[in-house]
Amino acid sequence: MTELTTAHFLFLSAALFIIGMVGVLTRRNVLIIFMCVELMLNAVNVSFIGFAWEQNALTGQIFALFVIAVAAAEAVIGLGIVMALSRRLDTVDIDEVRQLRE
């Protein structure tokens, strides 16, 4: 392909999302899992902006903006939970956190 198409950006988005998903599924450190979630949100933004570029529309860019805002809120709460978790259970291992299961 000699010209950029939306498929290029969609494949980039899919690759980033799947790498993030594999990280969430395989890692145990809750901070790494948090970073992988951020990676997945970012991959979705690539899709939004790629579609906005294809359609000559701004809706996708505005949605990406909202995703960034929600990701910032999620980061604050997520890291607050990590801090509370490490203070209460003294661990960042996600496998050690099973109080609701037992």
Partner: peptide, 28 residues
């Protein structure tokens, strides 16, 4: 999407990653 590129750098690398690094420092 120039505005989003700048917002991405400011919010993600400027705020979220700094926050993550601080938590990495504080959490044992």
């Amino acid at each position: 999407a120039e505005f989003l590129a700048v917002a991405q750098i400011i919010v993600y690398t400027g705020a979220i990653i700094v926050l993550v690094l601080f938590v990495l420092m504080l959490v044992q």
